[in-house]
Amino acid sequence: MRKQYSGFLLDLDGTMYRGKDPIPEAVTFVKSLQSLKIPFVFVTNNSTASPEEVTERLQNMGIPCEAGNVLTSSVAAAAFMSASPVKQSAYVIGESGLKEALLSHGIKEEEDTPGFVAVGLDRQVTYEKLAKASQAVQAGAVFISTNGDAVIPTENGFLPGNGAITSVITIASGKQPMLIGKPEKVMIDQAVQLLGIPRKKIVLVGDNYDTDILAGIRAGIDTIHVDTGVTAADELLQKNIPPTYSIPSLAHWQLL
């Protein structure tokens, strides 16, 4: 028997949309959440876009969203860093989404003796940036990476993701980063706090077992796998810990 949940954490790519195309069942589902006043937060490993930019993209697809409904790995990383006793400065590899998030949390950019090295996807990354980041980590800066995604899917196939960039610094410095995004629990724990609902009444919805579902499992919340993206339903049989539920699409989930 399925539980009734009071709050939802929602993945984006493969769950809400595929590339530039919204998934109709998902659009209808979020509209139902909104009409029933059931709170939800979109959780995304995307570190390049701000919550406002994510919101605009979703709204253009007809998906109800406000900036307060979005938690990106950049915002989660900045929140984690700002709560740390470490010097509030960072050498940053990343794009505007990460830089804006750090600035809004009072973390300034610094090259010489930063408290952190913060790494997000940077499509203009250079050898010099990687070298400076590695040197800062070796000198004692706390190594933070927004997510470990090795690749990102694009219209031109799979391209290097933030995990690939991060791995260069890991190998050069000999230090492992603190990972913030899915499948780690840091961002999910923050999203649970945003909802302000007991963990047992929250469920995470996602298409990718190795990021979304595993993040929910590690964070101790129920999960719903939707067969609209990366992980096919039959692949779940090979996983040691299955999702709480698996459905073909969000059209198969009854809210009441």
Results as ranks from 00 to 15, higher is better:
Met1Ser: 08
Arg2Asn: 02
Gln4Asp: 02
Asp11Lys: 05
Arg18Asn: 06
Ile23Thr: 06
Glu25Asp: 10
Val27Arg: 01
Thr28Ser: 04
Ser32Ala: 00
Leu33Thr: 12
Ser35Trp: 15
Leu36Met: 15
Pro39Asp: 06
Phe42His: 03
Val43Ser: 02
Asn46Leu: 11
Asn46Arg: 15
Ser47His: 12
Glu53Asn: 14
Thr55His: 08
Leu58Gln: 10
Asn60His: 15
Met61Glu: 02
Cys65Gln: 13
Asn69Arg: 05
Val70Pro: 08
Thr72Arg: 11
Ala78Pro: 14
Phe80Asp: 14
Lys87Val: 12
Gln88Ala: 07
Tyr91Gly: 07
Gly94Cys: 13
Leu98Ile: 05
Glu100Gly: 09
Glu100His: 03
His105Cys: 13
Gly106Ser: 00
Ile107Ser: 04
Glu110Met: 06
Glu111Arg: 00
Arg123Cys: 08
Val125Asp: 10
Ala131Glu: 09
Ser134Met: 04
Val137Ser: 08
Val137Gly: 12
Ala139His: 12
Ala141Lys: 14
Ala141Arg: 15
Gly148Thr: 09
Asp149Ala: 08
Ile152Pro: 02
Pro153Glu: 13
Glu155Met: 15
Phe158His: 05
Phe158Val: 12
Leu159Pro: 01
Ile165Phe: 12
Ile169Thr: 10
Ser173Asp: 01
Met178Phe: 09
Ile180Gly: 07
Val186Ala: 00
Ile188Pro: 08
Val192Met: 10
Leu194Asn: 10
Leu204Thr: 07
Gly206Cys: 09
Gly206Ile: 09
Gly206Ala: 06
Gly206Gln: 03
Asp210Gln: 02
Thr211Ser: 07
Asp222Val: 08
Val226Arg: 09
Gly229Trp: 08
Val230Asp: 08
Ala232Cys: 06
Glu235Ser: 02
Glu235His: 01
Ile241Phe: 02
Pro243Ile: 14
Ile247Tyr: 07
